[in-house]
Design a protein around this nucleic acid. Structure first.
Lengths: 230, 230
DNA sequence: GTACAAAACCGACAAAAGTCAATGACGGGC
DNA sequence: GCCCGTCATTGACTTTTGTCGGTTTTGTAC
């Protein structure tokens, strides 16, 4: 799946610098990272690694989208996070434990993998790298805490309202081709049927309009109200 | 609440070294930490900080137990984590964002607070400190991921069974005085009534026995079975 | 355009979780 | 020992969520 890249390291370094996580790193550090980064490519639905596997790489996304999911025995899924270009995942590798979730590509995706051992070496030399990783981890903790809050304390409708508010850009949520209702359901911790019902409720209440590739927010205030309740 | 301590820094350093997070740090680093650590004390039910506040300290627990909770408008709580002696919390401070959860002491508790600015200075000098924090953060991510999995994919009964299995030592779960059923309920993401029903189900099934300060596991296999389902 | 598969949608029903009100048990202070 | 407040327990009931079966719509390949 993955293989050493021999493409110009300058290009790789420039690409890495595009990732927010690495944007502030010094040029020599970026070059060092580019030297050890290994490129890998995945197609839609392809599994990067399964929960419980021990993958020794930290991954940076060159382009494409992936999801990190927990899968129950019955097949039901809960997505923990979506990862887009420039984001980093498999931070569990930093704790020396097996991966805790399954990561699946949603579309054609290119990654750079950085082996754990090399990462530790670099961190010892460049404290700024450790800093960057710490920030990344801390924000992940916050995201997960919010997810827990949602699941434990809010109704499906409220969760949906919050998701819409969060994703809306100029009153619109553009849907990637892979963003089916089933995908949304796994993000919200429910099943497609229930999600659909919640959507219809919002539609008939005149709060949103669902179009082909896009959900349009009509009544921002109404949506915010529903995001609070329960 | 908190005030500079003038007690022997050697003592403080020794106490810090007792925390698993800091156990492997070099003596000079421990001394440096001890110099800047500020002691604070909290009583039962006392709030260390509220969600949304900006507390600029990383805390290490000298002794006592605390909980980190999200509180809904209606008053319902979800605990994100319990923290005991030697553990570290308020890692959000590392991401430069306001605290995301409320932290409350469960019993008389002593903390050392380390100001954010000082922490960053020390991290720049001592990469091992950054390493330790990274490990700590990574395990927190894993814990939270498991909590999400529980909430989204498992029934209350299964969650309870898992909690019991996890806490059991030699087939017994000792209950701290503050570990009321209401507390357990907030850890499991439900309400006391429902938790109680789940407990009774396990009792009548002959899987556990509930005594005064202690829950005893009778049928380990049965409990493990119930921990899987749904 | 047709054919097909995937996704969306819908209604009836089942199960799980939450709420409410009331009662019993326990522990600590006096 | 007694009183009182907190915690635990219980049954009846409501609400939310999940399930199942099916139909309609949509997008895509041919």
């Amino acid at each position: 799946m993955s293989h050493p890249t021999s493409s110009s390291q300058k290009q790789v370094a420039a690409a890495l610098a595009a990732a927010p996580l690495f944007a502030d790193l010094s040029p020599p550090l970026l070059t060092a990272l580019a030297t050890i980064a290994v490129r890998a490519h995945y197609g839609p639905q392809q599994v990067v690694f399964l929960a419980g596997a021990s993958d020794e790489h930290l991954y940076v996304i060159a382009h494409g989208w992936l999801k990190s999911v927990k899968i129950a025995a019955g097949g039901r899924e809960q997505t923990l996070a979506l990862f887009g270009p420039g984001e980093v995942f498999n931070l569990a590798v930093l704790a020396d434990v097996p991966t805790q979730a399954t990561v699946i590509a949603l579309e054609p995706t290119t990654l750079w993998g950085i082996p754990r051992a090399r990462l530790h070496e670099l961190m010892a030399i460049h404290p700024e790298l450790a800093q960057a990783l710490i920030r990344s981890l801390a924000t992940r903790v916050i995201r997960l805490s919010d997810l827990v809050e949602d699941l434990a304390l809010r109704s499906v409708e409220a969760r949906l309202a919050r998701l819409l508010l969060q994703r809306a850009v100029g009153g619109e949520i553009l849907r990637q081709p892979w963003a089916t209702q089933a995908e949304f359901a796994t993000q919200l911790g429910t099943v497609p049927d229930v999600l659909n019902r919640a959507l219809q409720t919002l539609v008939t209440a005149g709060i949103i309009v669902v179009e082909r590739q896009c959900i349009r927010v009509i009544d921002q205030a109404g949506l915010e109200l529903r995001a609070q309740i329960t």
